[in-house]
């Protein structure tokens, strides 16, 4: 499979979860496991551009597919992309454990809906649990990123 455009190969047991493959085999630990049963959204990655729970997909199923993770977002080692920067500026994270999954969800969401209302953002965020922020600043940050991306 390709992760963030880079080919990653490995021979694995069929039962290995995609999340574990990304974390252990590819060494990309920005994708976190928060529940391993598809509720919390911390493990969200993009499979062929669409956000999915990587704890509910086996690694073998991603054979030949494109996977995008949080590590692929920033344009360089010394910068953040627009959405990441907006999270930083709006205090949209505290402990930061859920943040990668939320960024992957919202990144795809803004591609599909470049100019969402706060209500639409709130609804699109429903599949990602955050225990620290109360969500409000995340919604503000996504809206800020939308403004910047649209101008």
């Amino acid at each position: 499979m390709k992760i963030n455009g880079r080919a990653v190969e490995g021979e694995v047991e069929p039962r290995l979860l995609l999340a574990d493959f990304i974390r252990d085999n590819a060494g990309l630990t920005g994708t976190h496991l928060g529940c391993e049963h598809g509720v919390c959204g911390a493990c969200t990655v993009q499979l062929d551009g669409h956000p999915v729970r990587s704890c509910l997909i086996f690694a073998v199923q991603a054979h030949g597919h494109q996977v995008a993770t949080v590590e692929g977002m920033a344009p360089s080692d010394s910068s953040l992309n627009t959405l990441q920067q907006a999270f930083h500026e709006c205090h949209a994270l505290q402990c930061g454990f859920c943040t990668p999954g939320i960024l992957m969800t919202m990144d795809a969401f803004l591609r599909e809906e470049p100019d969402p209302t706060p209500e639409r953002i709130r609804s699109a965020l429903g599949g990602n649990l955050c225990r620290c922020t109360g969500y409000q600043n995340i919604i503000t940050a996504v809206r800020l990123a939308a403004d910047r991306l649209n101008c």
């Binding site: 956000p51 997909i57 969800t105 969401f109 429903g126």
Partner: peptide, 9 residues
């Protein structure tokens, strides 16, 4: 049905 991540899959 669930959330976007679930519906995508």
């Amino acid at each position: 049905v669930g959330h976007a991540q679930i519906r995508n899959r």
